[in-house]
Each structure stands twice: as C-alpha cells, then as structure tokens.
Simulated assay, not measured.
Amino acid sequence: MDYELAIEGAPDTIPGGTGVLLVHPSTGETDRIDTDFLKTDTDHLLVVSTRTTAREVQQKLEYYGVDEEHAVILDTLSVERGYSRRSASNVHYVGAPDDLDGIVEVVREFLDTHDGKLRISFDSITELAYYADEDRARGAVEDVLELLAEHDAVGLFHLAEEVHDEAVVEGYRELFDGVVTLTADGTVTCEF
C-alpha cells in the first residue's frame, strides 16, 4: 500500500512500512510538516508525544485542520508531571516518558486495532533520549519501525540535530528510509 506524502521535495508517495526521519534545529518550526504528514491520505493516526501534553497535541491538530476524529494521542508527560488527565478513548498515558515498553505497547495496540492507512508521528526521539538515554531510545525507535513494517503503516520521527552527537544523528539517518531536513531558515531538503 502506498501513502501520499505532502512534504516539499519528497516523493509523491512512499510505501507502507516506511519510516521518515525529520531532522530539525531544536527551535525549528516542525508543526506544519508534521500535520501535513498526518492529514494526507490517512484513515487513522497516532501521535506519540514525549515533548508536549495531550491537550497541546489536540490544540495543534485542531489549529492545523487535522481530523481529530481519527486521531489517537499517547501522552508520556502528564502522569509524571502530575497534570490532570482527561479520560478519553482516544488519549492514552504512560507513567513516564522513559517507559519505553509502555510506549511501544501503545503503538502496537494502535496498529493492531485500526485498519486502513495508518500514520504515526513520534515527537520526539530527542526528548525520548533525554529521559531514557540514547541506547534505549534507539532500541524503542527500532521496535516502532519494525511495527510499521509489520502493519504496512508509515511514521514521521522528530530529531533535534544539534542536541545529539554527530555519530548518533548519522546512525539515525542510516536507520530510516527517508530523511527530511529542516534548517533554521525554514529550508526543507529530502533524501529518499
């Protein structure tokens, strides 16, 4: 199954099972790329957020016109920070952003229980590594990429380039089928 890709300079479509790495400056404006990825040619979507709360994700989706009816959100921050949590069928929580098994399990459950064209936004690898450490974060990302391949789904994974060692960034570039690079001035380049 092929998925349309609404990213400037990228191929028009990518095959199911494709993971796309979004490399950006830590202050880069990634919301437009992320939401264009999520709302194009999608039946159901999952946002795994290690950077913002479910409420902030919902506000972003609404602002950019992503159909929230088909969105599931995994909030990894609210429990640990003691924020109030709203129970909803489309919002899941794990106890802390370093609960990598819990995160991978929610991804697996989402992919197992939804049909059609499925997209995942993983925002972000950088925050995951901050809470868990580089090696464990890399292992979780590899697990999620395997799940995408098994379920013919696609994913966009955020990585703030200057926060990681060059070797770590290069390792992620090699791991993914496609790399979208966003520069500080807003220029987008793609390698697939």
Rank of each mutant, 00 (worst) to 15 (best):
L182T: 06
V104G: 00
A167S: 15
V180W: 00
A160H: 12
E68Q: 14
L159G: 03
E62T: 14
E174W: 01
D115Q: 09
A129C: 03
T42S: 10
T27N: 10
Y64H: 12
S26Y: 11
L77H: 07
T42D: 00
S84G: 15
V79W: 10
V168R: 01
I73Q: 06
R86S: 08
T35A: 10
I103Q: 06
H24M: 11
M1Q: 05
T42L: 01
V179A: 01
R81C: 03
E134M: 08
D36G: 06
I103C: 02
R81V: 08
H151E: 03
R108D: 11
T30H: 05
D143F: 06
L111H: 08
F192Q: 00
V23G: 09
I33P: 02
A71E: 02
R138E: 04
R119W: 08
T35R: 07
S78D: 08
S124F: 08
K39T: 04
I73S: 05
H70S: 14
D98Y: 15
Y172V: 01
D115P: 06
D185R: 09
L145N: 00
G171Y: 04
E150Q: 13
T76L: 03
E161R: 14
L38F: 08
D112S: 15
V163I: 15
E166L: 12
A71S: 14
S84Q: 12
S84W: 06
V91K: 01
H24G: 04
Y130F: 14
V106H: 09
D2W: 07
S89M: 07
C190L: 03
E191G: 09
D101V: 15
T126M: 06
D152L: 02
V163R: 09
A10V: 12
Q58E: 13
A167L: 13
D143K: 07
E8K: 14
D112Q: 15
D177W: 00
R108Q: 12
V107W: 02
F176M: 02
V163K: 08
E80H: 09
L145F: 00
R85G: 09
V180P: 03
L148S: 04
D112N: 15
R138T: 14
V20M: 04
R55E: 13
E56K: 13
A6D: 14
E68T: 14
V180R: 00
F157M: 02
L147S: 04
H92W: 13
V20P: 01
R55L: 09
Y3V: 03
G186K: 07
A140Y: 03
D75S: 09
L148H: 06
V179H: 01
L175P: 02
D75W: 08
L111T: 10
R85M: 15
K117Y: 04
L148K: 04
D31K: 11
G9W: 07
A96H: 11
G17S: 05
S78W: 10
R55K: 12
G139E: 10
A96T: 12
E80L: 13
L45R: 06
Q58T: 11
D41M: 05
T18C: 03
